[in-house]
């Protein structure tokens, strides 16, 4: 085997200069990543967009129908319910998640004794697989036998029926999503530690209190990271909200927790209306794409680039 490789390399050296061979080898190493990125992400993302203009049931050949799918989905009430639910979900979960991560980072950024232990305990809850996390919360939120309501009862607080009631089901799912703050916390700890200590020393010499230091130094300097984290939570949330809905509520009660990813899954794989599912996907990512584009335009030059 090795002999063959050596001979192959020799043979190719007659045709290519060593410099060219070197570059050829480099591109060869890069090839799996580039090919995979193209075939598994780039093209599929484009095809999703293309399928939105076709009628397709995954068996026959797609038939071009123009804008018919878009016209169909905007006439369906369930689509608008899912849009509203998704927006509400993101509006509750993402800001809570970022605020939680920021508070934890502010508490746990100093390199004190035992700080790793505290950070690890919080980060550990982030690495729990989605399915396991959903099953744990299914138990935690059970109105009759769950520990959360037992705890609330102990304090004499009202005990909602959580996932069983349409008013509380979506907020409960959003709260559950908001507890996954580990990665955001680590990012913000790193960002906070990167701020020069002299700023804070200078502020303290000028008699600034803790709140003033935070308000005028930490907050403006961390703002780009917070924004980036907010966008990430919205984008990732659009995907990761699928598993809890699928496991815990099935979109119910009624349509109270039908989020867009779940509706798209149902459309595509239960009803085989792939065209309509793709149209919903296109709308969802159109909105997210606009948001991300806006933020990237705003954050250009904020230190998030190839020189990380």
């Amino acid at each position: 085997m090795s002999l063959l490789t050596v001979q192959g390399a020799r043979a190719s050296s007659y045709r290519f200069s060593p410099r060219m061979r070197h570059h050829l080898q480099l591109w060869l190493l890069l090839m799996p990543f580039l090919a995979g990125a193209l075939l598994l992400i780039g093209l599929p993302a484009l095809i999703t967009f293309g399928l939105a203009f076709t009628r397709y049931d995954a068996l026959g050949t797609p038939v071009w129908v123009g804008l018919e799918n878009f016209a169909a989905i905007i006439r369906r009430e369930v689509f608008w319910i899912a849009v509203r639910n998704s927006l509400l979900f993101a509006a509750i979960a993402a800001p809570l998640q970022v605020t939680g991560a920021l508070l934890l980072a502010l508490l746990l950024h100093p390199e004190r004794r035992g700080v790793h232990l505290y950070r690890s305990s919080i980060y550990l809850t982030t690495v729990i697989p989605d399915v396991a996390f959903a099953l744990i919360w299914l138990w935690l939120l059970n109105p009759l036998y769950g520990p959360i309501n037992a705890l609330l009862g102990w304090f004499g607080a009202p005990q909602p029926a959580w996932l069983i009631e349409s008013g509380t089901a979506l907020p409960a799912l959003a709260l559950m999503a908001a507890t996954r703050v580990g990665e955001g916390m680590l990012l913000l700890i790193a960002a906070r530690q990167a701020l020069p200590v002299v700023y804070f020393d200078a502020a303290m010499l000028d008699g600034a209190g803790r709140w003033q230091s935070f308000r005028h130094i930490t907050w403006p300097l961390l703002a780009p990271w917070l924004l980036l984290l907010l966008v990430r939570d919205v984008v990732v949330g659009a995907h990761s909200a699928f598993t809890p809905v699928y496991i815990m509520t099935g979109g119910g009660p009624g349509y109270a927790t039908t989020l867009l990813p779940f509706l798209i899954y149902e459309e595509a794989f239960s009803h085989l209306r792939i065209g309509q599912a793709a149209a919903m996907m296109a709308v969802m990512f159109g909105v997210i794409g606009l948001l991300v584009g806006f933020v990237f335009q705003r954050t250009r030059g904020w230190g998030y680039g190839d020189d990380v």
Partner: peptide, 27 residues
């Protein structure tokens, strides 16, 4: 080239997995 490739990698990070559910399944 590095600049472009890093940009590509960052862009790919932002495409959520469910954007490619349907074509991957069909593929």
């Amino acid at each position: 080239v590095q600049h472009w490739l890093v940009g590509l990698a960052l862009l790919l990070l932002l495409i959520p997995a469910n954007a490619v559910w349907l074509p991957r399944y069909v593929l």
